[in-house]
Design a protein around this nucleic acid. Structure first.
Length: 235
DNA sequence: TGTTTGATGCGCT
DNA sequence: GCGCATCAAACAA
């Protein structure tokens, strides 16, 4: 790729181009995840024809040894992306059927990231909906045959990943390079008085750490769920 | 090598 | 509101 002209090779955001501002550079992510997370609210992540305005995020990892983070027990093949360069995408598979997408923070060798929990699809709504209906990313998250309301398209981390079409193969992609398939844009500023913080959803360890950030009153924010230990299925 | 749990979402009651 | 589906990583023995 020659860069020029292919910058938006996979991105077709002509419809919202004026509303999402310029792409964020790597310096934006070169901070602790708990600092980047609230700053990501109102930002826009785009992959192909789909763009999502983030309304809910959670911070994980960092120097404080976060027991809820995948990086808590050190570097592994699975989480190595989180220890890599900031501004990359960390996609992981969980519960046997869901993908979740994170944005890596801090310099290399420090494992931390921000989980994108929910957002509003502002471009490529039709594409996002068809992915949800067909299970577009290979997971079964889209198996429903019913129509998905707009506000539910990216309401929840796995749904957000499906709408954006993010799967394992996107793990480690750079979203701060000009030729990248995934980019994050500055979006529109969010009224700071509307930003709320609280305990992270579904987290067992470190549940008391208020590293969940969301835009108060936004209908696309996912409902809070405390961690529930799964019952072992025995016959 | 075997077992357990998980940063979840859907369908049914 | 509740229970289930399903796979990979991590841990214990």
């Amino acid at each position: 790729m020659d860069g020029r002209g292919s910058d938006e090779a996979g991105l077709d955001l002509s419809g919202v181009g004026g509303l999402i501002g310029r792409p964020l550079d790597r310096a934006f992510f070169d901070r602790p995840s708990c600092e980047v997370a609230p700053d990501l609210l109102g930002r826009v992540i785009a992959h192909g024809p789909v763009a999502v305005r983030l309304t809910e995020v959670e911070a994980y990892g960092g120097p404080g040894q976060d027991p809820a983070s995948h990086t808590y027990r050190g570097r592994t093949p699975r989480n190595s992306v989180m220890f890599g360069e900031p501004g990359h995408v960390y996609v992981y598979f969980t519960y046997g059927m869901h993908f979740c997408a994170n944005l890596v923070c801090l310099p290399e060798d420090v494992g931390s990231a921000v989980l994108m929990r929910a957002g509003e699809v502002i471009a490529g709504v039709d594409v996002a909906r068809s992915r949800r209906l067909t299970g577009g990313n290979g997971s079964s998250a889209g198996r429903t045959a019913r129509t998905v309301p707009d506000r539910d398209l990216a309401r929840g981390p796995a749904r957000l990943a499906v709408s954006l079409g993010l799967v394992r193969e996107h793990n480690g992609l750079d979203c701060c390079s000009a030729g990248g398939r995934i980019r994050v844009f500055e979006g529109a500023p969010v009224d700071p008085s509307l930003v709320r913080t609280g305990p992270r959803t579904g987290v067992a360890a470190g549940a008391e750490t208020p590293w969940r950030f969301w835009i108060d009153g936004d209908s696309t924010v996912s409902p809070y769920r405390p961690h529930v230990r799964r019952q072992r299925t025995r016959v």
